[in-house]
């Protein structure tokens, strides 16, 4: 973000959560097809902004079979609206139409597939992390191929699912990769509780996190807060975050913890003490003196609880 100029085109990678358990929940304030109308208009608005604005759409679906799926562009399948003549519509701008049809068709195909079982739901709700990594790879590829370096990438995650704590490590990895590559991750949690990890994602990558007051006004929220590109953002006041929930999930039981144990060698987080770090195999030759909550309160009194002795100092990892 050193040199933002008006001549930069934007690459927007959208990750859309299509988790059917949330969208088809009776209390859902918005149906998926309604929301899609909003999202399609937003996509068109992005493409309308500049002739060379680029877009990629990834669906993050539930179920072991899906690890994030590209809705647009679709590289391996026959391209709709490509050389195969589709019916042209004089009322619609051709490049909008191509995107919209691809996205609608992709979502339809996802929903036509047998609904994932309930076990799969518990196994890992929406594969946000998988979709994020797909998105990051796509951005990397596009930037590498762009000789002039005028493409400014960003990621927008539209999610409805609650956090899945099993996703913690992959999501964090994505966040740090994005931070290193200077790619902001914007997050719109359309309804429900705040998504803790994604909130952190937006905070760390200097993106925007928002949970709209009324999900039915989704389009206005998208247009107002998530449409501005990096150039416009330097002149606009955009929603910020007052409070970010920095809680992490433990590596052993994937529980979200306020206070836990941290391996002093590899910084893995655990909710309960274990004598051997499961990540780096460091052995801890001491017992914790106090339980973590009390220890935090009395941390002034505790001095040097002992340092860990890595069993294999040269190659701590497996």
């Amino acid at each position: 973000m050193k040199d933002i100029s008006t001549n930069d085109s934007n690459l927007l990678v959208m990750v859309i959560d299509t988790n059917p358990f949330e969208w088809e929940h009776p209390s859902a304030p918005l149906k998926l097809n309604e929301a899609l109308q909003h999202i399609l208009a937003f996509m068109n608005a992005h493409l309308a902004g500049r002739h060379d604005n680029k877009l990629a759409v990834i669906a993050s679906h539930v179920g072991v079979r899906y690890n994030g799926k590209f809705l647009y562009p679709t590289p391996n399948e026959p391209i709709p609206g490509g050389k195969v003549p589709t019916k042209k519509d004089a009322n619609a701008y051709q490049s909008f139409k191509v995107v919209n049809e691809a996205v609608l068709e992709g979502v339809e195909r996802l929903l036509r597939d047998p609904k994932p079982t309930l076990e799969e739901k518990d196994l890992g709700s929406s594969k946000i992390a998988a979709s994020l990594s797909l998105g990051l790879c796509y951005i990397n590829q596009t930037l590498k191929l762009d000789a002039l370096g005028h493409i400014k990438p960003r990621i927008l995650v539209l999610t409805v699912s609650p956090d899945s704590s099993s996703d913690y490590i992959p999501i964090m990895n994505c966040i740090f990769s994005a931070q290193k590559a200077n790619i902001p991750i914007d997050v719109c949690k359309i309804w429900g509780e705040d998504a803790v990890f994604l909130q952190q994602a937006a905070h760390i990558t200097e993106g925007i996190y928002m949970r709209p007051n009324d999900p039915r006004g989704l389009l206005q929220v998208l247009m107002f807060s998530f449409l501005p590109d990096m150039f416009a953002r330097s002149y606009l006041y955009l929603p910020g975050q007052d409070q970010v929930d920095f809680r992490a999930a433990c590596f052993c039981h994937k529980k979200i913890v306020d206070i836990g144990f941290v391996c002093s060698v590899c910084l893995s987080i655990f909710c309960s003490f274990s004598p051997v770090c499961s990540t780096c195999r460091t052995k801890f030759a001491f017992q914790p003196l106090l339980n973590p909550a009390r220890r935090l309160g009395a941390k002034a009194g505790v001095s040097n609880p002992g340092s860990p002795r890595p069993s294999t100092p040269t190659t701590p990892s497996q």
């Binding site: 109308q37 399609l40 208009a41 068109n44 608005a45 519509d89 009322n91 619609a92 139409k97």
Partner: peptide
């Protein structure tokens, strides 16, 4: 223009 509506051709 954004939603592909209307009948202006």
């Amino acid at each position: 223009a954004l939603t592909g509506g209307g009948n202006s051709e």
